[in-house]
Design a protein around this nucleic acid. Structure first.
Lengths: 180, 180
DNA sequence: CGTTACATGTAACCGGTTACATGATTTG
DNA sequence: CAAATCATGTAACCGGTTACATGTAACG
């Protein structure tokens, strides 16, 4: 159950409203943990009831209901406690692999178009990551420990995209090859 | 919604009982799509009601309730239909990454031990995959199209383990390094 | 003869997804 | 002024997980 802790981590970096959190989830932390705004609002309410976070009307709320959430010591403690737990290995549920396996058994299934789309998606994501790397992590010296860790997380994404793309290209080559 | 289709694919390769399917899911197809026996029994019942599969008492049932399931043409058609749908990109939900990100913000979180366990898990899985590769895919010539695709799926797993391990080792080195 | 593996299920729960609702603010 | 974006929520559903139940077969 990592969603509350992902939210806590994000709030720790910057006190925010639910809406801003949802937007941030679409970017940085969302590459490793996605959440819809409904989930986030639900968790914020739950965590406030538990005393892990507190909120007040946002400075720029105007007449809207915008609230800003902040992590309380109890929330910080909970994050430390949770981090010490053993984490289960990530579960892979890749429907493309299931389809490819089906295509190995049924000749009329042609996965080439979908693999091509797949390659393109990985390509786009990769260049997106690389742009972030260039922008935020190109300094050669003086990176703080925090920055170095953040950079490694980005690199994880880059490695994933690179290896997925290379593999998909090889798979595509196999499917394009004449059936000898 | 890939579980029924993963089951269909597995049944296509070999007519089986629910129990055998659950065991097989722990091995081959389960690397890309896990399922507990409860889920599998539920899907088998659903798919039989839909006319995608049929069953009869297993030859080796004895006095047990063991049944053997077989894919019907309608099930095969459904698999073809489903394979033509665009598949969503795999969603990554990696709690280890969330923890590492938390550790970038809270110095008292030490992820070294868990990263070491992580590396070891990947190492074990990798040598397991390599043993399968040696056993089933070491032939240099005459591999059928079906075999080649299956080999590529295994290679996908191997690539994943290799890159995860390399990355985790690099991350570990960073965390071991003196905090300059 | 007790333990482990085989074999199939029911029930409750929970996290995540989808659809829908509501109102304020900004922009063209 | 209409449309898009900001902002927060409710409700229903569904796939996946966990706990529990039940009985047979094989093994030491």
């Amino acid at each position: 159950m990592s969603l509350p802790h992902a939210v806590l981590t994000s709030l720790l970096e910057k006190a925010s409203s639910g809406f801003d959190l949802a937007r941030r989830f679409d970017k940085s932390i969302g590459y490793f943990w996605q959440a819809t705004h409904q989930q986030i609002y639900r968790e914020l309410a739950r965590m406030e009831a538990l005393g892990w976070i507190e909120s007040e009307q946002a400075a720029d709320a105007g007449k809207t209901r915008k609230r800003e959430y902040r992590v309380l010591p109890a929330g910080r403690d909970e994050l430390v406690r949770w981090a010490a737990e053993a984490s289960a290995p990530m579960d892979l549920r890749d429907s493309l692999m299931v389809k490819l396996r089906a295509s190995a058994n049924i000749n009329s299934i042609d996965m080439r178009a979908e693999l091509e789309a797949h390659v393109q998606r990985h390509e786009a994501q990769l260049s997106h990551y690389r742009a972030i790397e260039e922008r935020d992590f190109s300094a050669l010296t003086g990176m703080s420990r925090q920055m170095k860790i953040q950079h490694m997380l980005l690199k994880k994404g880059i490695l994933y995209e690179e290896s997925s793309m290379a593999w998909a290209r090889e798979m595509l080559a196999l499917l394009e090859a004449p059936d000898s």
